[in-house]
Each structure stands twice: as structure tokens, then as C-alpha cells.
Design a protein around this nucleic acid. Sequence first.
DNA 1: AACAATACTGTATGATATACAGTATAATAA
DNA 2: TTATTATACTGTATATCATACAGTATTGTT
Lengths: 113, 113
Amino acid sequence: MIEPEKLSEHVERLNAELRRGLIVLVVMSQLEEKQYGYSLLKQLEEKSFSITQDTLYPMMRRLENQGYLQSDWQLDDNRPRRYYQLNEFGQAVLDALRKDWKTQLRIIEEIVR
Amino acid sequence: MIEPEKLSEHVERLNAELRRGLIVLVVMSQLEEKQYGYSLLKQLEEKSFSITQDTLYPMMRRLENQGYLQSDWQLDDNRPRRYYQLNEFGQAVLDALRKDWKTQLRIIEEIVR
DNA sequence: AACAATACTGTATGATATACAGTATAATAA
DNA sequence: TTATTATACTGTATATCATACAGTATTGTT
């Protein structure tokens, strides 16, 4: 039996776990439009969705490996940036996922109250 | 680069991942009232939230280890059943988690559209 | 008598968010 | 000029946990 430490630590850990799977949905939905990692990072920050480099960069690489994203290097302002965007397959996956999510959400909201 | 197989397989995997962290919230919210594993399983099934024994039983054990639940064996109808319920700490954690979740949800809904 | 439903236990595995460690340039402040 | 912060990545390690797998035993039901 683990000793109950500070409440907030527990809540934070559970909250992080809770956001876990949602992050993909959030990120994919933002990649309907072309973005590079850092710009997406700032954009989500702006929208009050906290995410770090440690989470975002590996996730984008993974989403590309899984075949949802297409990426290319672009040189703007003399700076190389790796731009990502959903490809056709990724867009189809996102559309379906979004639909499932909305159904799930109704069920969960009913249960959690 | 992984070959894009059937769309539905991808969507299902992502959807499962999406539900991942939410399950704790769902289960804890049901354990404000005393329940044994199998009854909770059937109750959630009834409410269209699909979850299997493989997920539920280990989770309840874990939530008890983490100090959120209290459990005891009861003999009803001559059958031994292990009843679980949130303890005081678990209730406090749930209350805070629920609150955070509602905030998170508003943000996510705004982003995902 | 056979089978499904009920009601658990214990341990293994795989996916992945996050952590850690590092590189390099541009902009800004001291 | 120099230091610091912001920008913008890369690669690999770790910890958590949903799910899988394997098993036990009793109570209906057909």
C-alpha cells in the first residue's frame, strides 16, 4: 500500500494520464494545416493546451512513421524548419477518430457527470 | 515507414489509446458507490462504455494500491465478492480530477472542433 | 452432463508520454 | 562584445499502464 502523499501530485499524475491519448487527436487536428514543431508548440500553448517539446517532437516523428503525416524541410527567414501536415490517409484517420471521439465523449460525460 | 493497412485498424488503435486515461475517471466515478468488479463491468457495459475484465480487474487492484480505494470481501448469495469503494482520499482525488477534466475538455473541444 | 455466466487471481507485453541529453542558429540584453 | 534566451531540431531511455494471457472455482442453465 503506497502512502498517500500530497493530493496535488496524485491529481497531476492522473490528469497527465487522462490527457495522454487525447494529445494525438489535438495534434492531428492542428495538422490539417501545415506546421512545424515549434510553431505548433506555441500555438497550442496559446490555446491553453500545455505540451512540451519532449512530447510533441517524438509524437510528430511517430505519426509520420505510422503514415499519417508527410513532412518536408523548408527554409524561411534563413532558418530550416521541418514542416508536417496530414496526408490523405491521416486525414481519413482523423475524420474517423473525431467521429468516434464525439460518441465516446457523450457516453463518458453521462457516466462521469 | 509503416504501410497504411486498413483504416479501421488504425482508428481502433488510436481510439483505444484515446480512452486510455479516461478509464480511470470513469471507474473512479462509479466507485463513489460500493461495487464489486463484475457488477461494475456489467454496469459500464449497460452504459455503453466497453471495458473488459483484463482492463478492469488490474485497474481496481492498482487503484487500491495507490491508496484511492478500500476493499473488502463480502458474502452475498453464498458467493464471495470483493467490493471496492473510494476512500476519503480517493474521493478528494476524484473531485479534483473531475474539475481539471472539465477545464481540459473545454480547451480540447475548442481545438478539435 | 456439458456449457455459459459469474467472479476472481497473478504475471507478461507492448505502446507511448515524458525525460534526458545533446546540437546549432538567431535575437536580444548586459 | 558577450552572455543569455528563444528558436528549432535530433536520438535514445524510462516509467506507466491498458490489455493480453493463463489459470481457478462456483453457480446457473440447457
